[in-house]
Every structure is written in structure tokens, then in C-alpha cells.
Measured scan of single mutants.
Amino acid sequence: NITNLCPFDEVFNATRFASVYAWNRKRISNCVADYSVLYNFAPFFAFKCYGVSPTKLNDLCFTNVYADSFVIRGNEVSQIAPGQTGNIADYNYKLPDDFTGCVIAWNSNKLDSKVGGNYNYLYRLFRKSNLKPFERDISTEIYQAGNKPCNGVAGFNCYFPLRSYGFRPTYGVGHQPYRVVVLSFELLHAPATVCGPKKST
């Protein structure tokens, strides 16, 4: 009989979020998941679920829940969905086509923008091939755009693969920082350890 609540607040209220190319993952297990707390949290810009209804989450049990978190621009949030393409979905964070879970995003301009620009948040701009679902690539190898080998030196046709967002408070909404948490639900042939409040007695 599990009684402790799942530590969703640790994920959602973290002081610093990860850059999207180096997205953070927390495994959540052996706890009671009260999703209504999240669902009623006012400032969400997006709360979209795939393969599961957000209002039914509290009735369900899962083997594991993974909480992935990172920061992207407002106009990139739409790429955090199954079957998407674009710089983020291709080179930074890719969801599987059969994704079961929820994508939760909110504007973090007050936290993550600075006058003069916040350059701490990076994304991958160049990559030889697209990421596989949930693949994480933190390499900083110089990207070779031409035929000539770069030998690890940036220059003509040789690019550092990461780019900084440089968030400023005055940017338009599409270019403002958004914090994103992706909850993915794993249902294995194993005992369920993460259940909603109704199922955990």
C-alpha cells in the first residue's frame, strides 16, 4: 500500500531547467500520482495528452512514469508532439509516433530571460542525422557541412553544433522561453508502482 505522493513538484518547480539538447529525465516510481494538482495549476500554456485522457489519469496505474524537462522557445512547443519535424524534434528531443503521455508547457519569461540576454539555454542546430525517439545527444563535436574534414576547428563550413537562445524579456511570445515537462507513461508486464489516488488503496 503506497502512500507517499509522487515528487512532481520537484520537477515542475525546479529552480533551473535543462537546455533542450541535454534534456533532463527523472524516473518516478513507487508513489501516488495526483495529476489533478498539475491539471489545476493555472499558468499552463499547453497540457496535451496522447493515448490517454488527462482527466482519467487519476484512475490509472503505470509501471513507471518518466518526467523529461527542458526549455525551448514558445514557437517550438508545437514540435513536442508525435510525428513532428523541425530543429527541436529532429536534433534535440524526439517523441515516438506511438507516444503515451502528456506534454505540459508554460511561459517562463520572468524566470529564464535576462536584460542583455540569458545565454545559458542551448539547443542543437546541426546534426548529421535525426534523433531516434528519446535519444539524447550531448556531443559538442564540430559539425562538418562541406567535404573538408574540420579536425575539431570551427570555421568555413565547420560549425559548433550548439546555439544559444539568448532570451531577453522584451522578445515577442514566440521567442520567449517556455518550460516543458513531458510525462511518459510506461506500461510493462510488471507490477504497477505509480497509481492515481483512487487506485492506491
Rank of each mutant, 00 (worst) to 15 (best):
N4S: 13
L5Y: 12
C6W: 05
C6M: 05
P7F: 08
P7K: 13
D9I: 14
D9Q: 12
E10I: 08
E10R: 09
N13T: 08
T15F: 06
T15P: 14
R16V: 13
F17N: 02
F17W: 15
A18L: 05
A22D: 11
N24E: 15
N24M: 08
R27A: 10
I28Q: 02
S29W: 08
S29N: 12
S29M: 10
N30Y: 08
C31V: 06
C31N: 07
C31S: 06
C31W: 05
A33M: 13
S36Y: 06
S36N: 14
S36V: 06
S36F: 06
L38W: 09
Y39W: 13
Y39R: 15
N40L: 09
F41T: 11
A42L: 10
P43K: 10
F44S: 13
F45C: 09
A46D: 11
K48H: 09
C49W: 11
Y50E: 00
G51V: 05
P54M: 15
L57E: 06
N58M: 10
L60H: 10
N64F: 10
V65Q: 05
S69T: 11
F70C: 00
F70P: 00
V71Y: 01
V71I: 10
I72A: 05
R73W: 00
R73P: 10
G74N: 03
N75P: 05
N75L: 13
N75V: 06
S78M: 09
S78T: 10
Q79A: 06
A81P: 01
P82C: 01
G83V: 05
G83N: 11
G86Y: 02
D90Q: 15
D90R: 13
N92Y: 02
K94D: 01
L95M: 09
P96D: 06
D97P: 12
D97S: 13
D98K: 12
F99V: 03
T100I: 14
T100Y: 14
G101R: 02
W106S: 05
W106E: 01
W106G: 02
W106F: 11
N107F: 02
N107W: 03
S108C: 06
S108E: 03
K110E: 10
K110C: 06
D112P: 01
D112C: 01
S113G: 08
G116L: 07
G117V: 03
Y119T: 08
Y119V: 07
Y119L: 06
N120V: 10
Y121I: 09
Y121N: 08
L122C: 11
Y123T: 15
Y123N: 15
Y123P: 00
Y123V: 15
R124P: 00
L125C: 11
L125A: 11
L125F: 08
L125M: 12
F126E: 00
F126H: 06
K128R: 13
K128E: 13
N130C: 12
N130D: 10
N130F: 09
K132F: 09
R136G: 03
R136N: 05
D137I: 04
E141D: 14
I142D: 00
Y143R: 02
Y143K: 02
Q144M: 09
A145Y: 02
A145R: 06
A145Q: 04
A145E: 02
G146S: 07
G146E: 02
N147I: 06
N147Y: 06
K148G: 09
K148Q: 13
P149K: 10
C150A: 00
C150H: 01
N151D: 13
N151I: 09
G152E: 11
V153T: 14
V153M: 15
V153D: 12
G155L: 04
F156D: 03
F156W: 06
Y159V: 00
F160Q: 13
R163K: 15
S164E: 07
Y165F: 08
G166H: 05
F167A: 00
V173K: 14
G174Y: 09
H175F: 12
Q176P: 01
Q176S: 04
P177V: 02
V180L: 06
V180S: 01
V182Y: 01
L183C: 02
F185T: 06
F185Y: 09
F185Q: 04
F185E: 01
L188F: 14
H189N: 15
H189F: 10
A190Y: 12
A192K: 13
A192E: 12
T193P: 12
V194T: 12
C195D: 11
K199I: 13
S200A: 14
T201D: 14
